[in-house]
C-alpha cells in the first residue's frame, strides 16, 4: 500500500497509514459501542414510553414524579450520573460489570430525553381520535398500546433519531469507566503508537460519518412510516 502522508513542513507529519495494523482492534471497540448503543436504545425507548405515559396520565402524582425524573436526569451531567452508578452500585451490594453499568446509565439518561420527545408526540395527537377510541369501548391500556403509541412513535421518529445520535456521542463517555469501546480503544492505540493526532482526528471523522449514516437511516424510516400522510407532514 502506498503511504498517504501529508507533509506539512519538515516537522509536521500527518500519516494515517500507521493506523492500519490497529484497525481490527478499533473495530472491536466499535462493535462494543454499537452493542452498548443498541441495548441503550431499546432501554431508553422502553423507559421513554413508560415515563411519557406517566407524564401524560391524568394522575397528578404520577405525572409529577415523571417530571421530576426527567428534570433531574436532563440537568445533571451524564458523567456525574455514570460515576454515581459505577461507584455507587457496588456500595449497595450490586456487582455488575462496567458494560452493564454503562448501558443502564445510558438507558436512564436517554429515557429522560426520549420521554420528552414521545410526550410531545402524544400531546400532538388529535383528541378526537382518543375520544373515538374511548367511545368504541377500548380500555385505557389498549388505547395507549394500539392507538397512542403507534401515532406518537411515527410523528416523533425524527426527534427520537437525534436523541439516538446524541446517545451514540454520549457513549464515548463510557470510556471513563474502564470500558474499551471505540473511544477507549482509540485511547489505547494512541498511547501505543504515540500518534494521538492521527488517531483522534480519524476517530472524530468516524463518529461524524457514523452519526451521519444514522441520520440518513432515520430520515428513510421517517419517510417510510409516514408514507401515507400528507406531503407537508412527511
Amino acid at each position: 500500500m502506498k503511504p498517504v502522508s501529508l507533509l506539512l513542513g519538515s516537522r509536521l507529519t500527518f500519516d494515517v497509514t500507521i493506523l492500519a495494523p490497529h484497525v481490527p482492534f478499533l473495530l472491536k471497540g466499535a462493535l462494543l459501542t454499537a452493542e452498548a448503543c443498541g441495548l441503550a436504545l431499546v432501554g431508553s425507548l422502553a423507559i421513554g414510553f413508560l415515563v411519557a405515559a406517566l407524564r401524560t396520565s391524568s394522575s397528578p402524582l404520577l405525572s409529577r414524579a415523571a417530571f421530576v425524573y426527567v428534570d433531574l436526569f436532563r440537568n445533571i451531567p451524564f458523567i456525574v450520573q455514570l460515576f454515581f452508578f459505577f461507584y455507587g452500585l457496588p456500595e449497595i451490594g450490586i456487582y455488575i460489570d462496567a458494560f452493564s453499568t454503562g448501558v443502564i446509565a445510558l438507558s436512564i439518561a436517554g429515557g429522560a430525553f426520549s420521554s420528552d420527545v414521545i410526550r410531545s408526540g402524544i400531546l400532538a395527537i388529535d383528541p378526537g381520535i382518543l375520544e373515538a377510541a374511548e367511545v368504541s369501548g377500548l380500555s385505557k391500556p389498549v388505547i395507549f398500546r394500539k392507538i397512542v403509541m403507534p401515532i406518537a412513535l411515527r410523528t416523533s421518529i425524527r426527534p427520537l433519531g437525534s436523541v439516538f445520535i446524541n446517545l451514540i456521542l454520549t457513549s464515548s463517555i463510557l470510556s471513563t469507566i474502564t470500558l474499551n469501546e471505540l473511544t477507549g480503544s482509540a485511547k489505547i492505540v494512541a498511547s501505543d503508537t504515540f500518534r494521538p493526532f492521527e488517531v483522534y482526528a480519524v476517530l472524530l471523522v468516524v463518529y461524524a460519518s457514523l452519526t451521519y449514516l444514522v441520520s440518513l437511516a432515520i430520515s428513510a424510516l421517517h419517510r417510510h412510516l409516514n408514507r401515507d400522510r400528507m406531503p407537508e407532514v412527511a
Binding site: 494512541a190 493526532f197 483522534y200 463518529y207 451521519y212
Partner: peptide, 17 residues
C-alpha cells in the same frame, strides 16, 4: 456530530504531538 470527549483528546493529546 462528534463526541466532545474525542475533540478534547484531539486538542489535548493530538495538537501537542
Amino acid at each position: 456530530n462528534s463526541p466532545v470527549l474525542v475533540q478534547l483528546f484531539l486538542v489535548f493529546f493530538g495538537l501537542p504531538a
